[in-house]
């Protein structure tokens, strides 16, 4: 192949890839642009909207009218809280399954995975009634517990696949060199496990932040995270495009940024290690 044809080919692929990428990203870009317009300008025809003056008015209004900060904070508490809780339970479990596997380890892993297959509606009624009877409806504590449990299987699996990659020989070598158990864990295992734990944590925060079944069913206002707060914009009440855009932009921005860091781990986490 001559140099010229590869250059032409590269140019064509570049144009095609950028066009399609832009098209896919466009709804997000449009939402971000619209969030910096006034309500009156936001519903104008696309070109008129683009050329209208920019303003931060919608961001102010979203906070003033509906205490946006509270819902944002709820999202942070729910996603980070459930992730930490899941890690505390999952790290020892994944650790022992990876380093001291028994005859039943594989069955146990598969069984954990199977709990993830249960559709949420299958347990909607009892969960709703239990939450009502224990006074947990619209409480952050109740929701943290549910989110911890629904993501626990993924966390155990991801950690397991990471821990599994730490070679056992390194531990033996450390032991031969006379390292104590404490030194072994602190200086040999931990540094090798930290990247895996960090990416598991990242992916789980993303999943919990975007979870939109239990958060919609079990919260109304006080403990409502952003998923539920944004859903309240589904009832039309006059002009709200710019405010919806501002609320949406702030809701997705942190996750878009975290997501960029976790691209590679995403594949592994969501396919339970089946694709790496």
């Amino acid at each position: 192949m001559s140099r010229k044809t590869t250059q032409t080919r590269r140019t064509v692929v570049t144009i095609a890839a950028w066009s399609i990428g832009f098209l896919i990203f466009f709804p997000i870009l449009w939402t971000i642009l619209m969030s910096f317009k006034s309500e009156g300008d936001a519903i104008k025809a696309p070109l008129a909207m683009l050329t209208s003056p920019w303003s931060l008015e919608s961001y102010h209004e979203v906070q003033e009218r509906s205490n946006y900060a509270l819902h944002f904070w709820n999202s942070v508490v729910l996603s980070v809280g459930s992730t930490i809780a899941a890690l505390i339970i999952a790290v020892p479990a994944a650790w022992s399954m990876a380093f001291v596997p028994g005859k039943r380890t594989k069955d146990l892993l598969m069984w954990m995975l199977s709990t993830k297959m249960m559709p949420a509606v299958g347990v909607l009624v009892p969960m709703y009634l239990l939450f009502r009877d224990f006074g947990l409806l619209d409480s952050r504590a109740g929701l943290v517990a549910v989110l911890t449990l629904i993501n626990l299987p993924i966390v155990v699996w991801m950690l397991y696949t990471y821990f599994k990659e730490i070679p056992g020989e390194i531990l033996e070598a450390a032991r031969m060199d006379g390292a104590s158990l404490r030194a072994e864990i602190l200086y040999v295992l931990t540094p090798m496990a930290v990247p895996g734990i960090a990416s598991t944590m990242l992916l789980n925060i993303i999943l919990a932040w975007n979870e939109a079944f239990w958060t919609l069913q079990l919260t109304t206002s006080k403990a409502a995270p952003l998923t539920q707060f944004i859903a309240s914009y589904s009832s039309p009440e006059g002009l709200f495009y710019a405010k919806l855009s501002a609320a949406s932009t702030m809701a997705i921005a942190p996750i878009l940024i975290l997501g960029w860091f976790s691209q590679k781990q995403l594949v592994r986490g969501l396919t339970f290690g089946a694709v790496k």
Binding site: I24, I28, W209, N210, S234, L244, A251, I255, G259, L266
Partner: peptide, 14 residues
Amino acid sequence: IAPFFVMPTVSALV
């Protein structure tokens, strides 16, 4: 990849 990180209620309403 970006759309994957958009929460369902946001993507649906947008």
